[in-house]
Design a protein around this nucleic acid. Structure first.
Lengths: 155, 155
DNA sequence: TTATGTGCAAACTGTTTGCGCGAAG
DNA sequence: CTTCGCGCAAACAGTTTGCACATAA
């Protein structure tokens, strides 16, 4: 916490430029927002925060920026059942936009918890072997009940 | 395939009555639709089919019926990333509304494939042990790429 | 300059809600 | 008869799209 991460932003912007995409205030703002948080942000939340550094950015623009950044592998997203998609910056420098963690969501308190990708290796392996299906393990949140809510329920 | 399943419907209706819920034409129609298909149906598709046996049933009513039936454990649903929730009848007679299979969805062709729940046991075990999280494995579809689309891509 | 993003409004999908009427029990 | 479910319209959230204007390159 205190480690400067400005170059992550710079790298992302350079990646944009390299691919012939324009570096705009809106895109910069979106990247800065994503860089500056550990939370899982929805497009709407990103729009609100981005509007602080780049007044006037619209939700629409944020969606379009996220789409573009997603296509370039700079950003990746996770579908969350029953609510908005969450977005995060992929660590630049890796070839694949593969995040290093997956998400589980508590259907009781709606909290989203990061889990280590390694927990999913057996699932990946089984599905690939059984039906040739390649699971994209960070692309949707797994649902269930978190420890806290389990405890609360059993009371 | 040819096995009469009328009693599955009857059982569901009886379950309704037993719990003090009213047995209405709309609810009957929804149950019949779910009983009469092997497909994964969305609320909208259920509404369309239900309207054939019970003219005038509205989407709204179908949603409410599905909610009620879900609370009673007669129906369960699976969230599908980026599109509508799919519903299916849980086999009556079991205590838990736990379905016997989970779903994976191909992000390329959007096909939904049933997978055996056993593939998910290691994941369940790991998460329970590591963070005390109980995964509800049939409550959200896992995303990825199916064998066909993988083959098509690598061509 | 000129293609590409942006802002805005509006459409669209999936789902929920408020309300008075109608039917199940 | 009385409560509960229904139909309808309308609201709602999340996301996408069409179009004219602004701007990065």
């Amino acid at each position: 916490m205190g480690t400067p991460t400005a170059d992550r932003v710079t790298q992302s912007l350079e990646a944009l430029a390299t691919r012939g995409e324009r570096v705009t205030a809106a895109r910069r703002a979106v990247i800065e927002v994503l860089d500056g948080t550990t939370d899982h942000l929805t497009a709407d939340e990103i729009a609100v925060r981005a509007a602080q550094s780049a007044p006037g950015v619209h939700r629409t623009t944020v969606y379009r920026a996220l789409t573009t950044l997603g296509e370039l592998g700079i950003v990746s997203h996770t579908h969350v059942a029953g609510s908005a998609t969450i977005y995060h910056l992929t660590t630049p420098g890796q070839d694949h936009p593969t995040a290093d963690h997956a998400h589980v969501q508590c259907t009781s308190c709606n909290r989203i918890i990061d889990i280590d990708e390694s927990a999913l290796v057996p699932l990946e392996r089984t599905l690939r072997k059984d039906i040739g299906f390649r699971v994209d393990v960070h692309h949707a949140a797994f649902l269930g009940t978190c420890a806290d809510c389990l405890a609360a329920t059993s009371d």
